[in-house]
Simulated assay, not measured.
Amino acid sequence: MGGALWGYFDDKYGRKPVLFAALLVMGVATFAIGLLPTYSQIDIFAPMILVAVRLIQGLAYGAEWGGAVMMTFEHAPLASRGKYSAIPQTGSPIGIALATVVFLASAQLGNDWAWRLPFLASAVLVLVGLYVRLKLEESPDFERAKDSGEILKNPVTEVLRKSWSTILRIIALRIVESSGYYMISTFLLSRISAAHPEAKGTTLTALLITCLIAIPVILSAGTFADRIGRKKLYYAGCLATIAFAFPAFLLPSGGDPLMIVAVFAIGIGLIWGTLAGAQCAWFGELFPTNTRNSGASLGYQLAASISGFAPFIAGALGAAFGWVGGSMLYMLIGVIGLAGVFATRETWGPNERKSVRPLLNAVPPEGAPSSTAAMASR
């Protein structure tokens, strides 16, 4: 719902105001969690309020990915859109790493402040983020669409009517990335912790190490996507998911700390990081400017909603088939992703790069207006 709501405003009114508003809503909701009364104070109303605040966070999050990635995508030079649009994707592993460190540190307090303090301290990040976003310039692509009268009355309806098949392709492409992440970070982590309680510290350490590995992998994947194309990199990620399906759940089943760290590092740090870095520019290039955020955000967030069920399904399969059940589902999501790659056109392959090379090599004549220089640089 957040993807549709904010995508509508983003394509209709601009990227900058939506980015600012979304962070403000997310920041207030996150800070509010640190102030919530407990169950012992107001009974059942405590979890009800918490769920309501989490829903508000979810609506705000619907704007974050599309707004941040598409803003970066549309500001980037044409030949480096993969490289630059991958940068916002590093926010996820950086955020998880910081949160893990903060909660591990605050746990030493041993009282209500152990969980309240991290939420309250998030206000600092929000204030910094709001300041940064105030300084942003509006997307040049959006400004051009606005000046040329291409802004639509209802971009969400338009993208659903004309580009529904592209949204389905994005869902398939994203399921392999997001479901694969949840399978490792949620299902496998819980399964290891339940079978080997003594390994709980190891799993948290593995998650932290994995996040640190994922950051350079995401950035490298975005750069390689500019050099070899989006599809080739995504093919590699999907095939790696399929090949890793059985080792991912067999190797850590004995509780060996080294195997746990290795599986998290490969499954999230390398495979997930590659897919996450390659997808940003690809998704943006599948839509025109006036429906770009609506289309990309809808596909991205619908896939996230579907992927949220992956740990539950894996749990049911695990109960019936043991660790093989998780492997079967992990392999299936790799196949779904592979089908999505087959069905989706390449947007930055050799032919595309060749067709824009004259523009990339263009040198604006002396005295040319700044818009001409900007177009040549893009």
Rank of each mutant, 00 (worst) to 15 (best):
A4W: 00
W6S: 09
Y13M: 09
F20A: 14
A22R: 00
A22F: 02
L23C: 10
L23K: 03
A29I: 08
T30E: 03
F31N: 05
A32I: 11
A32G: 07
I33Q: 11
T38C: 08
Y39D: 06
Y39K: 05
I44E: 13
P47T: 06
R54S: 11
Y61R: 02
G62P: 09
E64G: 05
M71H: 09
E74V: 10
P77C: 09
S80A: 12
K83L: 13
K83F: 11
Y84Q: 04
A86V: 12
I87H: 04
G91R: 02
A97G: 05
L98T: 03
L98W: 00
A99P: 03
T100S: 12
V101I: 13
V102Y: 02
G110C: 13
G110Y: 12
G110T: 11
D112R: 11
D112Y: 03
A121Q: 09
S122Y: 08
V126I: 14
V132I: 14
L134S: 13
L136K: 08
S139H: 03
E143N: 13
R144L: 15
A145D: 11
S148C: 06
S148R: 14
I151E: 08
K153V: 15
N154Y: 12
V156R: 00
R161P: 00
S163E: 15
S163P: 11
R169V: 08
I171K: 01
A172N: 05
A172R: 06
L173E: 03
R174A: 14
S179H: 01
S185L: 12
T186F: 13
T186P: 03
L188M: 15
S190Q: 14
A195E: 14
E198S: 13
E198I: 08
L207Q: 04
L207Y: 01
L207C: 01
C211E: 02
A214K: 10
A214E: 15
P216D: 11
L219R: 09
S220R: 08
A225I: 00
D226A: 09
R230H: 08
R230T: 07
K231M: 10
K231T: 10
K231N: 12
L239G: 11
A240N: 01
F244C: 00
F249S: 03
L251A: 14
P252R: 00
G254M: 06
A262I: 10
F264R: 02
F264Q: 04
T274D: 04
L275D: 01
A276W: 07
G277K: 05
G277H: 06
C280N: 14
A281M: 06
W282G: 05
F283K: 04
F283T: 11
E285H: 02
P288V: 09
T289H: 03
T289W: 02
Y300I: 12
A303N: 05
S305P: 00
F309Y: 13
A310G: 13
F312T: 12
I313S: 02
I313R: 00
L317E: 08
W323D: 07
W323H: 12
G325N: 09
M328T: 08
Y330P: 03
I336K: 02
G340D: 06
E346M: 11
G349N: 08
P358K: 00
L360E: 13
L360G: 06
N361D: 15
E366N: 07
G367C: 10
S370K: 14
S371Q: 14
A373K: 15
M375R: 08
S377V: 07
